[in-house]
Amino acid sequence: MLNDKETNAAGAESASSYVITVNKTKWIIMLASTFAVAGLLSPWASSSPDGLERVAEDHGFLDSAKTVFNWAPIPDYEVAGLSGNALKVGSAGVIGVLVMLAALWVISRNYGGRGNHGDGSGMPAAHK
């Protein structure tokens, strides 16, 4: 990040000249920001219709939306039974982040990376 000029002078770069950081502090900042965004910022998101809803409204087909699957445990990012918008939406966000972390960790641990199976995690390699 600091020596752009020098390295550029040394030779051409491309997308492959850059790798994802292994700096722990940066990843801890990412994790903290993720929880802050989901838990604290989310209740203050705009409730205006999004781009597709705007187009659907303008062109008269918003009504064609229907509910097929009615069993979502936390519909519309609001945890039922809690009082106050900030608490409802914020806790939905935190739950969502935890579910995402768990789901992707299990998927990529079991399916990603050769020779990464059965090393004490107790989880079977579900494929094959």
Partner: peptide
């Protein structure tokens, strides 16, 4: 693996 999971969670948030 943990980077992928964390970025997925960030995208969701």
């Amino acid at each position: 693996v943990s980077m992928v999971a964390l970025i997925g969670a960030f995208v969701f948030a």
